[in-house]
């Protein structure tokens, strides 16, 4: 049996983390969660991951900063990073793309579309 895809979700909303955890765990993913960019970097420093899903607006370190730091490092620089956000502006989307995001998903998320996107980028 193949190993479950490991996902780190990064979101400052406890309710959104709960929704994401439910949606992804019930679809067979191995889910870990962080509540902002700083917590995510601390977790990534000592853990392996296949896909990162991050919010944009978060305290301490936002999603843009997280993507830039992951891409600028060595350990996870090639990992797919999906942005999951309530933002819908083209400017923010372009900024995420320039920072190195792999994809952009608009909240409220649709579980089937989210799962399909994760499977596509996870290889």
């Amino acid at each position: 049996m193949s190993k479950a895809t490991r996902i780190l979700t990064v979101d400052d909303s406890a309710s959104m983390r709960a929704l994401l955890n439910h949606a992804l765990s019930t679809n067979g993913f191995d889910v870990s969660q962080a509540d902002d960019g700083v917590s995510a970097l601390e977790w990534l420093a000592v853990n392996e991951v296949d896909v990162v899903i991050t919010d944009i607006n978060m305290p301490r370190l936002d999603g843009f900063g997280l993507i830039e730091q992951v891409r600028g490092g060595t350990r996870h620089r090639d990992r797919p990073i999906l942005v999951l956000t309530t933002e819908s502006s083209d400017e923010k989307k372009a900024r995420a793309r320039a920072a190195g995001a792999t994809g952009w998903i608009v909240k409220p998320f649709d579980t089937d579309k989210l799962v399909a996107a994760v499977r596509r980028v996870a290889h």
Partner: peptide
Amino acid sequence: APRGEVELF
């Protein structure tokens, strides 16, 4: 769904 749209770069 009006949202939940996915765009892969």
